[in-house]
């Protein structure tokens, strides 16, 4: 059942699971079955991931966590979704050493050589997924949202 009202422009519409899973498999090599226990809802350009439970008919502000957003042909994964699903990624993954991870955490760009396709990548440090980066022309641009950044190297304990 799709929650919200169909006439409501802000309603969440149930999205095809295999379509979303395929996009993540193509880009990051995440097996499609990782998403078996989830369902996806779309509202405007955003897709949200939710545990596979029937939702009662209520007016929702948010459903689960924001998974990705679409801009025309392109889509961008959110850092919070990569922190949940990104550990299964097998390609377009960048592992950062300590110093570079500080730069990434501060939300900055850095010149970096990585064997990945241009576009969005899963950024790891020490086995943890830090979030989403944008890699192009030898530069990794941190896509961490402001509230997930840690500014000030001296204060950061990693």
């Amino acid at each position: 059942m799709s929650p919200g009202w169909s006439k409501d422009r802000n309603a969440f519409e149930l999205e095809d699971r295999s379509k979303i899973a395929r996009l993540w498999q193509e880009r990051f090599g995440i097996p499609m079955q990782v998403f078996d226990c989830f369902c996806f809802y779309r509202r405007a350009q955003n897709v949200w991931a939710f545990s596979d439970m029937a939702l009662p008919k209520l007016r929702y502000e948010a459903i689960g966590l924001r998974m990705m957003n679409f801009k025309e042909e392109h889509w961008k994964p959110t850092s919070c979704a990569l922190q949940v699903f990104g550990r299964h990624a097998t390609k377009n993954v960048v592992h950062l050493p300590s110093e570079q991870s500080r730069i990434f955490f501060a939300g900055k760009s850095q010149v970096l050589e990585a064997k990945v396709e241009p576009g969005y990548v899963v950024v790891f440090y020490n086995g943890d997924v830090l979030g989403c980066g944008l890699y192009s022309h030898g530069t990794l641009v941190s896509q961490l949202p402001k509230e997930s950044r840690i500014i000030g190297d001296a204060e950061m304990d990693i």
């Binding site: 989830f38 545990s51 209520l58 929702y60 948010a62 459903i63 966590l65 997930s148």
Partner: peptide, 27 residues
Amino acid sequence: ITSLRSNCERLGAVNVAITRYDGRRFP
């Protein structure tokens, strides 16, 4: 709701849906 959402996302709570009703009149 902004802080509620960001905490749910940071902590990876995928079974939480957020509504905005006056609790006294929740459907």
